[in-house]
Nucleic acid binder design. Structure first.
Length: 288
DNA sequence: ACTTGTCGATTCCTCCAAGT
DNA sequence: ACTTGGAGGAATCGACAAGT
């Protein structure tokens, strides 16, 4: 290993920065070393995996800034190391100064709380069924209602699938019935350019094409300022559009799109986000 | 101390529609 | 006809627990 003050650099899969299995290693580095540089996704011909070049110095961090960029961009942003050590998220996410400043501004307003384990929020992947065991129609009375990715829409669900939840039908993933059957869950589609999520209070199980956030108990801290928003998300009746006529469905979908936009406006207003900042945020999400 | 089993996260594969 | 990327499905792997 390097002497005090010495530098150490390596090219590794970028999973080092994100996967939970490396959480303790990341904490160890942040706690005892100065993280000098992270260069994401450097190009090496023939190499398929995404990589990261990292450089650390054997020296306790002291007001240190990490230089961060994503290849081919070589203009490195300086991000305080303290940002990464202070966030419960535990990942070394790619961020730039503009986004970071907006993030700080929002945090200062004390209107938000993080969806952490400490706040009783947990995330999980759904169960993994053996081939052809999840069906679109109910085939026997033992099957229960489950959601696959295609059932999840923004703020709504559409139809559902069926599955007989027993050992021989399962291939992996979350098998904890208690967790899967939690009453209040937020479902997120596994794939998609934007976040597609909805809330469900009917104890519906999630298949692996759906991630879910569940709550042990409602958090003790529920700032009154965000109540209008929470009420929209948590009390809205679950809309099932599958049995509606085409014209009625189109009307409802328009209404959902309009409500969606209204919620966005409300959130931006709530956090005092300016038009310029809004553009930065939406551009960073790849447009919507 | 080694082996086996379980859970659940992560990686890898396949299908298929849309684009060229 | 071939390529590409989105969406979802299947396989694999690490962490931990329990058994020998």
């Amino acid at each position: 290993m390097v002497r005090g003050g010495g530098h150490f650099g390596f090219i590794v899969p970028d999973r080092l920065c994100f996967n939970s299995q490396f959480l303790n290693l990341r904490k160890h580095i942040l706690g005892g070393y100065t993280l000098k540089k992270l260069w994401f996704k450097p190009f090496f011909g023939g190499v398929i995996s995404d990589n990261v070049i990292f450089i650390i110095q054997k020296e306790k961090p002291h007001n240190a800034s990490i230089e961060i960029a994503e290849y081919p961009n070589n203009k490195f942003e300086k991000i305080p190391q303290e940002i990464y050590s202070s966030l419960s998220d535990g990942t070394w996410f790619i961020v730039n100064e503009q986004i970071l400043n907006i993030f700080k501004k929002i945090k200062q307003q004390n209107l938000i709380f993080e969806l952490t384990k400490d706040n009783k929020f947990h995330t999980s992947v759904g169960f993994i069924a053996k081939p052809n065991k999840v069906t679109e129609t109910k085939e026997n009375s033992k099957q229960i209602k489950v959601f696959k990715g295609e059932n999840i829409r923004r703020f709504t669900t559409r139809d559902c699938c069926f599955f007989d939840f027993k050992k021989e039908n399962l291939a992996g993933g979350t098998q904890d019935k208690e967790k899967l059957s939690k009453q209040n869950k937020i479902f997120l589609r596994k794939t998609g350019a934007n976040i597609i999520a909805t809330f469900d209070s009917n104890n519906t199980y999630a298949e692996q094409s759906v991630y879910f956030i569940y709550i042990d108990k409602f958090p003790i801290i529920m700032p009154t300022d965000i109540n209008p928003l929470v009420n929209i998300r948590f009390n809205s009746k679950l809309l099932d559009l599958s049995d509606k006529h085409t014209s009625e469905r189109e009307r409802l979908e328009e209404e959902i799109a309009r409500t969606d936009a209204e919620i966005d406006d409300l959130v931006y207003k709530l956090y005092g986000i300016t038009e310029d900042e809004r553009k930065i945020i939406e551009d960073s999400l790849g447009g919507k």
